[in-house]
């Protein structure tokens, strides 16, 4: 049995809307083990992004606990949560979020700058990451010269270049056509197998479902159903 790396206990997140609390997540209990390839599925507004942001310590819970890699998210300060992200968590967003002034190579390299890699080490890692996503020939292009599928691949390369334990992807295929969506998922699956990276997705895209080992269906901040393959 693989090691448990994320444990959510009675996790809640509420926002104050017009003076009344509004629950984006309600007492969610979930745990994830190393090497999972899991999708959080639900309609828009069901709390998927909120859940991923809390796991990634970009947001903090209003109730319950989120333990990520043995760290309690609520108790981390700014720099501790930055550190957690820096070494252990990669993000992929729905919008590709590449920095337009940098080349593909530089966008990926960016993620390494906070750690003390030498220039040679960085080069090796970046080229390797670009190879995984099949973009080694596009490394000197600027993002505006790339297709949507290619852009998302760069984002994946940027997320995995540090070889994080956890990769969080918030609707990574939402802006892609079917062909690109499938190819992106295959790439991620490959990385999941080869590097053992834990993948947690959010999606409401049917195409994604068949790739998932585990599906968690979220509705109005509650877990409605969970299926495992």
């Amino acid at each position: 049995m693989n090691r448990e790396i994320i444990n959510l206990k009675n996790l809640s997140k509420s926002y104050n809307i017009a003076g009344k609390p509004f629950y984006a997540l309600k007492e969610v209990n979930l745990s994830f083990v190393e090497g999972e390839f899991t999708g959080i599925v639900g309609p828009s507004g069901s709390g998927k992004t909120t859940l991923l942001n809390i796991i990634g310590s970009l947001d903090s819970p209003s109730g319950g606990e989120a333990i990520v890699l043995e760290k309690n998210i609520s108790s981390l300060n700014h720099s501790e949560s930055a550190r957690l992200r820096n070494y252990n968590i990669g993000f992929i967003f729905q919008v590709f979020n590449l920095l337009p002034v940098y080349t593909v190579y530089e966008n990926v390299e960016f993620a390494l700058l906070l750690q003390n890699f030498s220039q040679d080490e960085r080069k090796k890692l970046v080229l390797q990451a670009l190879e995984w996503v099949g973009l080694e020939n596009h490394k000197d292009k600027k993002p505006d010269k790339l297709s949507g599928g290619e852009s998302q691949r760069v984002a994946i390369a940027r997320a995995i270049v540090k070889k994080p334990k956890i990769l969080l992807a918030d609707e990574p295929t939402a802006n892609l056509d079917a062909e690109n969506a499938h190819s992106i998922l295959k790439t991620m699956k490959k990385i999941n197998k080869e590097l053992g990276t834990t993948f947690i997705f959010s999606t409401h895209d049917e195409k994604v479902m068949k790739y998932l080992n585990r599906t968690i269906i979220l509705k109005d901040g509650n877990i409605e159903k969970e299926t495992k393959k």
Binding site: G56, S79, A82, R85, F93, L114
Partner: peptide
């Protein structure tokens, strides 16, 4: 993006 890759505020 910088915060996401782990730069502190």
């Amino acid at each position: 993006i910088r915060l996401a890759i782990g730069e502190s505020k």
